[in-house]
Nucleic acid binder design. Sequence first.
RNA 1: GGUCCCGUAGCUCAGUAGGAUAGAGCAUCAGAUUCCUAAUCUGAGGGUCGCAGGUUCGAAUCCUGCCGGGAUCACCA
Length: 585
Amino acid sequence: MNIFADFIDRVMKAVESLDLRAKDGGALDFSRITVEPPRDSSHGDLATNAAMVLSKAAGENPRALGERLAKVLAEDPDVAEATVAGPGFVNLRLGNAFWHARLGEMLELAGDYGRSTIGAGHKVNVEYVSANPTGPMHVGHCRGAVVGDALANLLAFAGYDVTREYYINDAGVQIDVLGRSVLLRYREALGEDIGTIPEGLYPGDYLKPVGQALVDEFGTKLLEMPETDALAIAKDRAVDAMMAMIRDDLAALNVHHDVFFSERSLHAGNGGAIRSAINDLTMKGHVYKGKLPPPKGQLPEDWEDREQTLFRSTQVGDDIDRPLIKSDGSFTYFAADVAYMKDKYARGFEHLIYVLGADHGGYVKRLEALARAISDGKLKLTVLLCQLVRLFRGGEPVRMSKRAGEFITLRDVIDEVGRDPVRFMMLYRKPDAPLDFDFAKVTEQSKDNPVFYVQYASARCHSVFRQAKEQLGVESFDRATMRAALHRLEDEGELALIRKLAEFPRLIESAAQAMEPHRIAFYLYDLASQFHQQWNRGTESDSLRFVKVNDQELTHARLGLVQAVCDVVGSGLALVGADAPVEMR
RNA sequence: GGUCCCGUAGCUCAGUAGGAUAGAGCAUCAGAUUCCUAAUCUGAGGGUCGCAGGUUCGAAUCCUGCCGGGAUCACCA
């Protein structure tokens, strides 16, 4: 249960009972009424702004209105105290029994606690990674992969019907280059001395096995057939090999996709799918033949005014019209995108989310324009731009040159730092901010890494249970017994921990709606912090220890609290995509 | 030049759909281990929320204009 949503209903009812009338006789606007946790917990458990929001229209002093509202709300059996504070906030303090009941629900729901139906089964497509299949994934892909994956996890947990999708850019010039690079490695595998790799081809060693595989499969046959045929085969095998490599890398990062969509498939059959998509746009009047105005500012040296087939995207919100067919009659990359988005729309998605790197910022408007044109405004489209990751080692920037084949691969980073720290670090920042990733900090000073802090909370929960079993000489503890004892939780720190746990459902819903998975990471850190605090209070005051051998009921109650922390930390870490360890050594 | 993002403590960053006295971590200083894992905890100092206007009961948050930093601009993929 999202207690904040629950109390909005109760506040609304209370407000209605006041029988307020707008001064001008119209209806009062209740939509701005909120119920939130107060920033300062000393103010209470919940705060509502209802009196301040309504006072003006109702022509009543906000504090006076607040007093009336507080009086009604105080009659709610769950409300221990309702007071007016500041400019007219109504602060509610809830009774311990209310919190005990919430904790009981958490224990009942276990791993499903926090799961929401707010997504109502809406079909959402999250496209992320979509790295070009021309080589292994490098660190630059890492952030989008983690953010996209965590977002998909979050949306699914919030009740959306999520499809995780990867667009394989297996067409175009770069794939020709890949094919030619592989053919060179093929000749090398046949014993030919190829010397240095020519400029413009991919020099990486990772293509050697692909060349060898071609030898294993075809022997010298590729040399004997026309080059275009050989190239086609080389491209085909190379893309498959690269994608296999990329899938392995993604799996190492705990990233999985439901659909791998091939760009090449859109070009199949003489570009039938693309042709048809452009035709659709043409029927709707979004396509014309014409010339683009030259770019503003500095004119490119090779600028030439040419007639092309253009998408009139300016009519649907873009800054400039976009070419679909080049002057030589071939399709632009964007033309394939038109067909691709049409396909997604036809598959019934209501919302398309693209997780892209900041270098794709210029692409956002044309995608939005395209969505409008394709669906007549019905399709919702969101682009999540992740700012770039800058790599450091001991404060020094790490240089990479893709041309020289020297780059840090995703696998390198995972091997050096570990999967969980990588995932957590990528989420421990909102995506709009650039991220400095320092190997030295994430590995050497691992104790400063927030992921260990959170995982330690999980390990500590399990440790408490291990200790409890030993001290009480019990095999296991069951949730029903814990639930029956919860009324014994009276310590302020324990209640504060329950309140923190009670925020989890609201967090999930708001993070999902805002599409901000990083909020989970920050929440987990807060929760872990509060749990570590409570644990340490037991070292200062013996009466606050979780395990009390001479009071089994109290022990069960506190273990219930520990269990709930364990559940929520576990759920949260699962959304982040990291493990919740049972112990840390 | 156009578009997008960012600017909050010495450093790295949060700030929950406009809320109350702006918060963490690191670093600095002072403390806690006969004790369920010290990978932890307690306390202290540290702020013109880039600048200037505007919107309103109320702005770090929304709007406008500046200043500073980054990304991007194509018949590329």
